[in-house]
């Protein structure tokens, strides 16, 4: 195996890793904010992919152009899910942790069923997107253009997220609520409103990821399953609730996946990710960048 092939493979792993980070960002954000794991996260991603697909079919909008609209729609959807489901799950009188898990799981199953009903279980793809099939050559390494664009979108999104969290009142309210959801009421922050906006922001992030993935990945009702598993691993690796930990862990997951694919048959490409996860669980249970 040449150095060239290794570099090639790690470069694509890096691009994919940045996209994994974006997929996981919303999950980490919501977990950090309110200690809720969204077990319908994969189905959020699936919904966003179908939204990008629908905009392509209906208005011939390229996923890259429709990404902001998909993200905006997912923002509304996320806030609705909080107000319609999660809010009630959090105020459950008994077994609150269990109720959250199964309420969001049930929601995910319903979303998958709806996708089957509306779009059939067939695999869809966007055949002629702007970047589809194109490559960019950098220093002798060929990078697939859709993945490269996705990675750049991810970088931009994390940059914007950093600005939102550190430079805006909303971001400060988010941080304050995450530190102590009870005390913020004393300074006039409406916790429920912040939670709803947090769910919106989290869903918007996964909406961006969905639009990006729609450029080069098949779209089908169960597509969320494998991505959500990677997202859970990414978030657990990064340290639950740490958005920028998820960013770093996403890159790591992408690189490890690529390295595993070099060494093992393709059907075993996730083995490396799971092994990495297990090692981190044993050595550093709080995740690489998390605090307990």
């Amino acid at each position: 195996m040449t150095t060239q092939a290794v570099a090639q493979s790690l470069a694509s792993g890096l691009l994919m890793g940045l996209i994994y980070g974006l997929v996981a960002a919303g999950l980490a954000l919501i977990f950090g904010l309110m200690d809720v794991v969204n077990f319908a996260h994969g189905e959020f991603l699936m919904t966003a992919m179908y939204a990008a697909f629908g905009l392509y079919v209906a208005f011939a909008l390229d996923p890259l152009a429709s990404a902001p609209f998909v993200a905006a729609a997912m923002f509304v959807f996320g806030a609705i899910v909080y107000l319609g489901v999660v809010r009630y799950a959090m105020s459950a009188s008994a077994n609150a942790g269990m109720v959250q898990i199964f309420a969001t799981f049930g929601l995910g199953i319903v979303m998958r069923g709806l996708a089957q009903l509306l779009f059939t279980p067939d695999y869809r793809s966007i055949p002629h997107s702007w970047l589809g099939g194109k490559t960019v050559q950098v220093a002798g390494i060929f990078l697939p253009a859709p993945q490269l664009a996705g990675a750049l979108v991810s970088l931009a999104a994390f940059g914007a997220l950093w600005l939102v969290i550190n430079r805006t009142d909303f971001g400060r309210a988010l941080e304050a609520t995450r530190e102590d959801a009870g005390a913020v009421a004393l300074v006039g922050i409406d916790r429920k409103r912040i939670f709803a906006l947090g769910w919106g922001l989290g869903a918007a992030l996964v909406g961006l990821a969905g639009a990006v993935l729609a450029m080069f990945f098949y779209i089908y009702p169960d597509v969320g399953a494998s991505f959500s598993l990677i997202a859970y691993v990414t978030v657990a690796l990064g340290g639950f609730g740490s958005v920028f930990g998820a960013f770093a862990a996403g890159i790591l997951v992408g690189l490890v996946e690529a390295a595993t694919a070099l060494a093992l048959p393709p059907s075993l490409k996730y083995v490396g990710i799971y092994a990495l996860y297990l090692i981190v669980v044993v050595v550093r249970p709080r995740g690489l960048f998390g605090s307990l």
């Binding site: 049930g106 929601l107 199953i109 998958r112």
Partner: peptide, 22 residues
């Protein structure tokens, strides 16, 4: 294969969790 069973099943899971937490 239209997903009705998934929808009913998922609604049931949600309903159980939210409606009867104990």
């Amino acid at each position: 294969g239209k997903g009705f069973d998934l929808i009913i099943y998922g609604l049931l899971v949600m309903g159980i969790a939210l409606g009867r937490p104990e």
